[in-house]
Structures are given as C-alpha cells and as structure tokens.
Nucleic acid binder design. Structure first.
Length: 421
DNA sequence: TCTGGGGTCCTAGGACCC
DNA sequence: TCTGGGGTCCTAGGACCC
C-alpha cells in the first residue's frame, strides 16, 4: 500500500491570486458566505496572525494596518480551478480519490515501477505550470500517514513541498513523536483535550495505546486512526465518487428576520435551490427537513432553534412539491417574538438513477419532469435564479447574504472573463 | 454592528415488538 | 405487593472533516 495526498496550498487565496498577479506577496484573505469569517489565508496573512475561522470584525485593525486584501468567497471560481487541478493530476497518476475541493488522495500502488517521490515532484511541477496552483504532497502507507507526511511537506521548506514517511519503523516513530496529537487527521480539539488528559500528547503516544482501549474510551473511528498511524490501513481508497446522502441549502441572514413572510421567502428560496441542485445530480429525495434558528451569539435575546420534517412520497425533486411542503413546515415552526438569523432546508433519503414510482401517484410526473427541465434550461442560459417561484420573493431580498468583495467569475461567466489590455 | 456552509459517521437511548 | 429480556428501528446529539 502506498498513498499520496496532494493538497492545494491556501487554495481559495491562491485562486484569487492566479487571476490577479498583483496580489502576489500581499496578504490575502477569503471570507465565508455572508462575509462573516476568514476561511482562507495566504501565507502572508497567516504570518500576520489572522486565524482560520476568525470572525472578520475581530481583525479589522490588522486588515487596515497591513493592507490585507479581502475577498468574498467565489465558489464558482474555486470549483472550476479544482477541476483543472484534478484533471492535471490525473495526467500523471490515474488512480485518484477526490477528498475535498482542494485535496486528492492518489493510489501509488499500481505505479510501483516508478519512484514515488520523483513521480510526486513531477506531478507537483506540472500542476503548478498548468494551473498556477502550488500543491504539497505527502506519501505514506495509509491515508492518515499520507496526511501526516503532507503536513510535514507543507511546514518544512527543506522538503520542497513533497515528503515521504520513512519506511523504517523507528524512523517513522521518531517523526510521529514530533506530531502533536490534535494535528492528527481525525483528532479534533475535543478529542485532543481528552487524549492529553490521558497523557497522550503526540501521534506516537497514540500508536502506543492499546487499540481496544482507544475503541472503548472513544469510538471505532479513533481506533482506526490509531491503527492507521501504526501503518495498518483502515480507510478504504475508493476512486468512484459516492452519491451524497443529504443535501442542505441554508444561509444566515444579512439582517435578523422577525417577519413571517420574509422567513417564508428565505425557506422558499432554499427549497428551490436544493431541488434544483438535486435535479442537476439526477436524484430524488424521500425526506424533507426545514430548520430555523435565532442568533446563538446574542445571549441577550430569546433563543429558538427548531426543525420539522416530512416524508416525500413518492420521492421527488419537483420544485413545486418540495416548495409547498417546505412552506407548510415553515409555517408550523414559526413563532413570533424571536429574531431569526438563519433558515435552511435539508433533503435526505436520496435515491439516484432509476427510481420506483409511487403506486398511487397523484401527480403527473412526466409533466412535472418536463416543466422542471424547461425551468432548469432557462436558468442555465439566463443565469441562476432568473426564473424562480414567486414564493421566494419578488422584491429586493432584505435577508439576502452580504457579499461585498466578490471577485469576477473569471472562468465560468463570459461576461467576467479577465481582460488582457 | 459584525460570528459560514456543507458534509460524514458513530453512539446512546427511546419506542416498539415478541 | 411482586412486571423480562432481547432484537430492531429511529432519532438526536456529538464528534470529525474541509
């Protein structure tokens, strides 16, 4: 077994830079939806001490003081760049599993005729040349060890962005003794704290714990992590992308919402977008859930966080069906006297491909399907949201998200192509 | 003033049934 | 007076990830 993990450096910040080279060497941060938190930082921004996930209002001073470049997130751009990076890696290594928008695992076992480190360095160079995105690559006998190696590749410049875990056990243990327990993939800060209380400070300490004990005090996932650190693979490599199990569309509101109609508009909009996305993927949902929440940070205000769900029978992706059910649930959840901050819709019990129809179908499904096709085509051509149900609001949406610093969608909108004059 | 969104999996406990 | 135990299914909550 031999895996590589290729991970794009500071991915979102890097994407912003690829199209605006004048941002080179300047601190750049990318914000979450609603421009709320920092979700990506260039190296310069990290060096300033801006933390991952930090609310942006907490680093206003730093931003001003150091001329930090601020961008709203531009997922259309990042997703497209991600596709290009993966396509380039595939030219070099045919067996890959896409793990996230900026990471892929590669199975190197079928390529053992070649030196793994050389292969990864060549891959890295090609990705940089073809896409402008620098990646770091870690190599190891399990996914968890490849993750460890990736961290080392990224943090120690002398490895020039590619690092392979030592095959010799005692050498490997020496490396693991330098990895803090909560820097291990799969150990978050809560488990990290619990491990420390048990005297487990490093990845090596975890390897030395009896696996049964890890299983008993934590769970089977933690045990797998411990075994993988010891070189025993527990996480499968699966190159075929699995179908999703749930699909969520939700947003915090730019302003708090106290009006039932406005809340309903938001729910309608999320339901519409969720159904659209599901159709795009060729699925149907058997269950629908709607949730609404107040602002959990406002401890001075009354709090409320509720959800309701219903079965969709037969399973469907038809907007009017999902929409009317969602609105009905939303009306039941509504209670006046609260300032709502977020609403969302979740579709679950998804099925893809051929689906059994209902025995006593009440709707004309062929007609629904034609209608949805036409709607999707119009929105694809005219821009998403051009055609949308009246329930999601006709006027300016005062609950809409803030996005004050979005860069152009250079690669996915003709009108926003970069110009070279 | 201002605090993201979208996923996965596991486990404990309750409901229900025999 | 005295009220089992095991299996299954479902859900909520908690942990993790990017």
């Amino acid at each position: 077994m031999m895996y590589a993990l290729a991970d794009c450096n500071n991915f979102y910040a890097t994407c912003e830079r690829v199209f605006q080279p004048r941002l080179e060497r300047r601190p750049v941060i990318v914000l979450s939806n609603n421009d709320g938190c920092v979700v990506a930082r260039s190296q310069e921004a990290k060096d300033l001490g801006i933390r991952m996930g930090q609310p942006v209002f907490q680093c206003r001073d730093l931003i001003k003081q150091h001329g930090v470049v601020v961008r709203s997130s531009n997922y259309a751009l990042y997703e497209d760049m991600s596709r290009r990076v993966v396509a380039t890696i595939l030219e070099c290594i045919p067996d890959v599993e896409i793990y996230s928008i900026d990471e892929v695992f590669c199975d190197l076992a079928p390529m053992m005729g070649r030196d793994p480190e050389q292969l990864c360095r060549m891959t890295r160079a090609r990705v940089l040349q073809w896409t402008g995105v620098p990646v770091s690559i870690g190599i190891g006998p399990t996914k968890t060890l490849a993750k460890v190696a990736n961290r080392i590749a990224k943090k120690n410049p002398e490895h020039e962005s590619v690092y392979r875990m030592p095959e010799d056990t005692s050498e490997c243990h020496r490396v693991l003794s330098s990895v803090a327990i909560d820097d291990v993939w799969g150990i978050g800060h809560r488990w990290g704290r619990r491990f420390r209380q048990m005297g487990v400070e490093t990845a090596l300490d975890l390897v030395r714990l009896p696996p049964r004990q890890v299983r008993a005090r934590f769970n089977i996932i933690a045990m797998h992590t411990a075994l993988e650190l010891a070189g025993i693979p527990c996480n499968d490599f699966d190159p075929t992308p699995a179908h999703r199990r749930t699909l969520v569309r939700s947003r915090s509101f730019g302003k708090m919402v106290e009006d039932q109609d406005v809340l309903s508009q938001a729910i309608a909009s999320h339901a519409t977008r969720a159904a659209e996305k599901l159709r795009l993927e060729g699925g149907v949902a058997g269950r629908l859930m709607v949730f609404i929440q107040t602002n959990r940070f406002r401890e001075d205000l009354p709090q409320r966080s509720v959800s309701g769900s219903c079965e969709l029978l037969p399973a469907t992706s038809t907007t009017p069906v999902i929409l009317s059910e969602a609105l009905q649930i939303g009306r039941k959840l509504w209670k006046p006297g609260f300032a709502y901050k977020k609403a969302g819709v979740m579709l679950s019990e998804l099925a893809f491909g051929e689906v059994q129809g209902g025995l006593f179908a009440e709707r004309d499904e062929a007609r629904d399907s034609r209608l949805m096709q036409i709607m999707d085509q119009i929105n694809a051509r005219m821009g998403s949201g051009s055609l949308h149900p009246a329930a999601s609001g006709l006027k300016r949406r005062d609950w809409a998200m803030r996005q004050d610093h979005r860069s152009p969608r250079y690669t996915t909108r003709w009108s926003e192509l970069p110009r070279t004059v």
